[in-house]
Amino acid sequence: MSLVRVDDVSFGYARDRRILDAVSLDITAGDTIGLVGESGSGKTTLLRLLLGLQRPASGSISFDGTPLDPGNAAFMRSFRRQVQVVFQDPYSSLDPRQTVSSIVAEPLRSLRVPGDHTQMVADALASVGLDRDAARRYPHQFSGGQRQRIAIARAIVPSPKLLLADEAVSALDLTTRTRIVDLLRRLGAGMSLVFVSHDIGVVAALCRRIVILEKGRIVEAGETVAVLANPQHPYTQRLLASVPRLKSKDTSP
């Protein structure tokens, strides 16, 4: 069944400069979807609309059958608990003046989630592979990959149904990147995951379904394996041909 329904959504100030143009998308429970696009594709705007940080100019977004309405406080509180996000830059996404425990506990405090917060934070840290004593330390004491784990812990601590990731591994080193992708894949088993990225290789490794965005429009969508094996739209074909591969080309002149 459908968890999030994006129905004919457009966003933008003038009719001829649409950031998003008539986008429709169904996110079912337990799905992993990769939103792939280059700069100017509108993928980050779509993510902000899905988070309820901005409202579409036309069209509608509904969550669990209820339309997304920032004015509806009771609905928004349950929505915030169900939908969490991880950002690209692990250096900007953690408040440098707070301890890790206070950072991870923020959704629990703000959304007044019942239960033992200390234990829930410890569980979240454990499930992203961080030591229990990480809780007492500050963000600057961690590497980029560890910081991204902290950000993921904050996102999963209220047990959301949907996790949104905005280029969540793009700022990380290659070896760190594979570990975080593995972590997200493991977490994706228990919730829906929408992974926004320009990196089609990471999306291919992580997502069951893929949506290709170009200039605010969805040009192709489907099962990742099928789309990669047989891309239909010329833009998808060009995108795939542009991705550098390790083997392939002969290095002799």
């Binding site: 290659l174 070896t175 990147r177 594979t178 990196d199 089609i200 290789g201 990471v202 291919a204 490794a205 394996v225 990669l228 094996a229 795939l240 991705v243 591969r245 390790l246 083997k247």
Partner: peptide, 28 residues
């Protein structure tokens, strides 16, 4: 170097890069 890496670090880099390559080829 990429075909027969000698150092563990090179091997781990190549394994990481190859995992995304393989995913694109539909093998994962």
């Amino acid at each position: 170097v990429f075909g027969a890496p000698q150092h563990d670090y090179t091997r781990s880099l190549l394994a990481a890069a190859r995992s995304f390559d393989d995913a694109l080829e539909g093998r994962s």
